[in-house]
């Protein structure tokens, strides 16, 4: 090959390598984005069953159970509006406790049970995992909106009657 062609071949190789890398990245990226859903969202609308998702909220008080003396535990995660039954096998994080904010990563079964592969709690006493905080905030905002709607509704009704 002439030097010029060699340079072109090298350039071509670099471009191809770069292209392969980009395809690799985008492909892996698509497949491995883990979306976050609140318990309300899980209850309300279709959340994908076939892919890994994260749910977050508080561990509902009085729902934590250990299956016999095994390493499998179940508990409910709630955002105040809806709660989801979560099952997890393994060692829970140090700061896992009823009434605390946690995030669970795993898959949703068609019967509504959530099988967690990882459970994350907060890193210290002072804050909540951001996802758990978000779930509570969204549920609260929803409750507030519902309350406002309820307050507005009678008015609408009465004007309806007036007609």
């Amino acid at each position: 090959m002439k030097p010029r062609n060699k340079k072109l071949a090298l350039l071509g190789a670099v471009v191809v390598a770069f292209g392969v890398a980009v395809v690799l990245v985008l492909n892996a990226f698509q497949e491995n984005l883990v979306f976050f859903h609140t318990p309300t969202e899980v209850k309300e609308r279709a959340v994908p069953f076939d892919r890994t998702i994260r749910i977050g909220g508080l561990v509902e008080k009085g729902t934590f159970k250990r299956e016999g003396e095994s390493t499998t535990v179940t508990f409910n995660v709630t955002d105040g509006e809806a709660s989801i039954l979560v099952s997890y096998t393994g060692i829970l994080p140090d700061l896992f406790r009823e009434g605390q904010g946690i995030v669970a990563e795993g898959k949703l079964l068609t019967d509504g049970q959530f099988i967690a592969s990882h459970v994350f709690a907060k890193h210290d006493e002072t804050y909540m995992p951001p996802e758990a905080a978000e779930a509570l905030m969204r549920a609260e905002a929803k409750a507030k909106a519902a309350l406002e709607a309820a307050e507005v509704a009678p008015v609408v009704e009465s004007t309806g009657k007036g007609d």
Partner: peptide, 21 residues
């Protein structure tokens, strides 16, 4: 636009094939 995370599988899937060459 919502909350999401990119898990270790992404990084492993991209990083390992790039490191071998």
């Amino acid at each position: 636009m919502g909350k999401m995370s990119v898990g270790p599988p992404y990084f492993n899937a991209v990083f390992v094939p790039l490191m071998i060459p």
